[in-house]
Design a protein around this nucleic acid. Structure first.
Length: 418
RNA sequence: GUGACUAUGGUGUAGCGGUAGCACAGAAGCUUGUGGAGCUUUUAGUUCGGGUUCAACUCCCGAUAGUCACCCCA
């Protein structure tokens, strides 16, 4: 490998999806899509490029988070590849607020970009299911969103034993912080500490470093008492009645520190070797205010493809690869190749996914290729088939063969595939 | 951004301070209409750059890349 040849490695932190990988990816997206549509959500989409202003904080000119891909275009406009979908959907909803019918149920599976150091569960180009309900302030919307998150997991083949949904309510914290008389700065720091609580073992000591001992005592007392709230208990019992049984209240769930204002939740893997947060979401009330007008309340979640994939892998839930191609025609000579091309068209009209082997190799090698590609059926096409119009459909998985006329191939193949 | 660990054909792996092996994959051939196999032949490698040494894939330093953790996680 000399230095003047190009590397075949993808760009740092991004992935290639070879057919086997793409197959899993499509399986994930299909599960997400199926669950969302069962819940009455409509799909939307947008460009990966957004004006950088969308990610600037209101007060300062700085990008809210430095971990973005940002560039200047030829018209001197500053452009950012979306690091998340929520500002985009807030922009879209705010822009058509008078035309849209609320409450709105929308979902999308966009790819997002973050300039971060890659590691397990984190890449620079990832896909994320975003599902949100806008304009429904009640507990029922919260139940629907959490039930949807649950349904996505179930759709991917998980059982309730494989994961756990932990819910909390930020309003409990807001009141507690008010009671302890925390400054905004302290609130932010305590939130961040709380978010890491399960990962560290000196939570109390750290808390005393952040706030005065009176405040810390007040907070710790509050954390101990605030095991739940009437709202959370109602939500949990509502979800239970909807068949969502693996919900627990966990007052340490805060979801980082951003726009969440009410109920927040996080989905955890219950596998002992992988007890981490898979994804989460919550209620946000002020997201559309950047665009003016009356605020629109929203609740939603985002589920990344990387952690979803890791979850399926560790629970042995990944689907087995199956190629899209159902049948390969294996011509034995040049004349048969032309014949195979017309036969292929005939079968394609009947919705069979047909490939014609163009290698010119011997029939044995062609079968080998089909087998390696996991294509389930082959038909050898030679002089005998051309003359008789009868073809032998061979199923490679078990070696069974059936000799059929062209018009019966499709039906036979589909019934064998099930 | 900080740190730790790793780096051998395309892939997965041995190995030793003194000629780099193996398996799979790839290519060619034998068998010529059911042959998915077998056999033969063959292609292809020590990440890069310094240093120590008579001699470095091996030891040391640096770079690069990957992995993992921290940070962050919108």
């Amino acid at each position: 490998m000399s230095k003047d040849t190009l590397s075949t490695e993808p760009y740092k932190g991004v992935r290639d999806f070879y057919p086997e990988d793409e197959f899993i990816q499509e399986y994930l997206f299909e599960a997400m899509k199926t669950a969302c549509e069962k819940f009455g959500f409509e799909a939307y989409g947008a460009s990966v490029m957004e004006p950088s202003e969308l990610y600037r904080s209101k007060n300062s000119d700085e990008i809210v988070n430095e971990q973005t891909y940002t560039f200047v275009d030829r018209g001197e406009r500053e452009v950012t590849l979306r690091p998340e979908m929520t500002p985009t959907v807030a922009r879209m909803v705010a822009g058509k607020r008078h035309d849209l019918t609320f409450p709105l149920r929308w979902y999308s599976i966009p790819n997002c970009f973050r300039y971060e150091r890659p590691q397990r569960g984190r890449v620079r180009d990832f896909w994320q299911l975003n599902a949100d309900i806008f304009g429904a302030p009640g507990i029922e919307a919260e139940a629907e969103i959490i039930a949807l998150a649950h349904a996505v997991m179930i759709e991917m083949g998980a059982t309730e034993n494989d994961f756990e949904i932990r819910i909390n309510d930020r309003r409990m914290l807001t009141e507690l912080f008010k009671g302890a008389d925390l400054t905004d700065e302290q609130t932010k720091n305590v939130m961040q500490l709380l978010d890491r609580k399960s990962k560290i073992d000196d939570f109390d000591a750290k808390l005393f470093e952040l706030v005065s001992s009176n405040q810390a005592t007040h907070l710790l007392d509050g954390f101990a008492k605030a095991a739940s709230s009437a709202h959370l208990e109602s939500l949990r019992s509502l979800l239970y009645s909807m068949g969502v049984g693996n919900v627990t209240v966990d007052t340490s769930i805060v979801r980082g520190f951003d726009y969440y204002t009410g109920v927040v939740f996080e989905v955890f893997d219950t596998a002992p070797e992988n007890r981490r947060s898979l994804f989460g979401g919550g209620r946000y009330d002020n997201l559309t205010e950047l665009f003016g007008g009356e605020p629109i309340t929203g609740i939603g979640f985002g589920m990344g493809d990387v952690t979803a994939r890791d979850f399926l892998e560790s629970h042995d839930l990944l689907p087995n690869y199956r190629p899209a191609t159902e049948l390969m025609l294996c011509p034995m000579d040049a004349t048969s190749l032309k014949h195979a091309l017309t036969l292929a068209q005939e079968l394609r009209h009947k919705d069979v996914a047909v490939s014609v082997n163009l290698s010119g190799k011997k029939i044995g090698d062609q079968i080998k290729q089909a087998d390696k590609m996991s294509i389930p059926f082959i038909i050898g096409v030679g002089e005998r088939e051309r003359d008789s119009g009868m073809y032998t459909l061979k199923q490679l998985s078990n070696g069974t063969e059936h000799t059929l006329s062209a018009e019966h191939i499709a039906d036979h193949l589909f019934s064998a595939l099930g």
